[in-house]
């Protein structure tokens, strides 16, 4: 007994070091896995308000670029609205803004953005109070940004598409060829579309958009263009290099998308797995 106590006293610093190191390593492993139970995240009230006031300061530095982007987007949407108005001439148009729209869009401000790590996260200044829940999709003017990971009352954390844990359903525009969009952790301007069948028609410069099988994102949201493609796994599948439309290093405004049909679709999915069993 005496010896144990002596041992503890003699090595107390080492023991403290090892136990704290263990805690830190557990947090680190948690942050690298696709789980919602992490303790250390940037959506707490104090951290969130610090980050929010920081972006309040730095946002002034690129107000001009941000305004330009929003102006362009406005023009785009206005053009689309004019086209719709033109085709709907004479029809009743109230359904356009009825309560039961398939996708609801929440505008938000990015208060923290990472792109130089292997698992990157983004923090937004809206949360549960504004109706944000985990698993909603997040997009910007130029394309997809990520998926909501954790929400607190006023802030949300987004798993950036620049995260090794992410895998999104995507397809080549104008065809039904689908694949999984992943990031290998190197270049914030490039992603890979993997598991594309060998017989698919892959052309350099084709556009990649979100797939119809995705329950998180509406279909046909822009992702990027095909830069290059190689056959992998003994030539059975393509691995396509996709150049992103979105400049992930420069993001000010983001839109969270809430899909009306997530729950019904998930119920259908679980039904089929049960039948298979």
């Amino acid at each position: 007994m005496q010896q144990i106590i002596n041992f503890l006293i003699k090595y107390r610093n080492l023991l403290l070091y090892l136990s704290l190191l263990l805690i830190a390593l557990v947090f680190t492993v948690q942050s690298h896995s696709y789980h919602r139970n992490s303790f250390v995240h940037s959506t707490g009230n104090i951290t969130g308000s610090f980050l929010s006031s920081r972006s309040g300061i730095y946002d002034y530095l690129n107000l001009k670029e941000e305004n330009d982007k929003l102006r362009k987007e406005n023009a785009m949407l206005r053009m689309k609205a004019l086209v719709t108005a033109d085709t709907l001439l004479g029809d009743e148009t109230t359904f356009l803004f009825s309560e039961d729209v398939p996708y609801r869009v929440f505008p938000s401000r990015v208060i923290k953005n990472d792109y130089s790590k292997r698992d990157n996260f983004i923090t937004l200044d809206i949360g549960i109070d504004q109706g944000i829940e985990p698993d909603m999709g997040v997009v910007t003017t130029n394309g997809i940004l990520g998926i909501i990971d954790i929400s607190s009352n006023r802030f949300s954390r987004v798993i950036s598409i620049l995260n090794s844990e992410i895998s999104l359903n995507a397809q080549i525009k104008g065809s039904n060829v689908i694949g999984s969009l992943t990031w290998d952790g190197n270049d914030p301007y490039m992603m890979s579309l993997v598991d594309v069948p060998r017989l698919a028609k892959v052309t350099k410069g084709d556009t990649i958009v979100t797939g119809r099988q995705s329950t998180t994102f509406p279909p046909d949201i822009l992702i990027g263009t095909i830069r290059d493609a190689q056959l992998v796994e003994n030539g059975s599948r393509y691995k396509i290099d996709v150049a992103l439309f979105n400049d992930m290093t420069d993001i000010g405004t983001a839109y969270v998308i809430k899909s009306r049909d997530v729950k019904p679709l998930q119920i259908i999915d679980t039904l089929t797995t049960n039948v298979n069993e």
Binding site: A24, V26, S31, S38, L51
Partner: peptide, 23 residues
Amino acid sequence: LILSFLLGLIVDTFQDTGGAHAA
């Protein structure tokens, strides 16, 4: 040791790095 650990952990919450700064 405890102060250094806490300092790292606070930086971790701002950068979403789990416990890397703390370690």
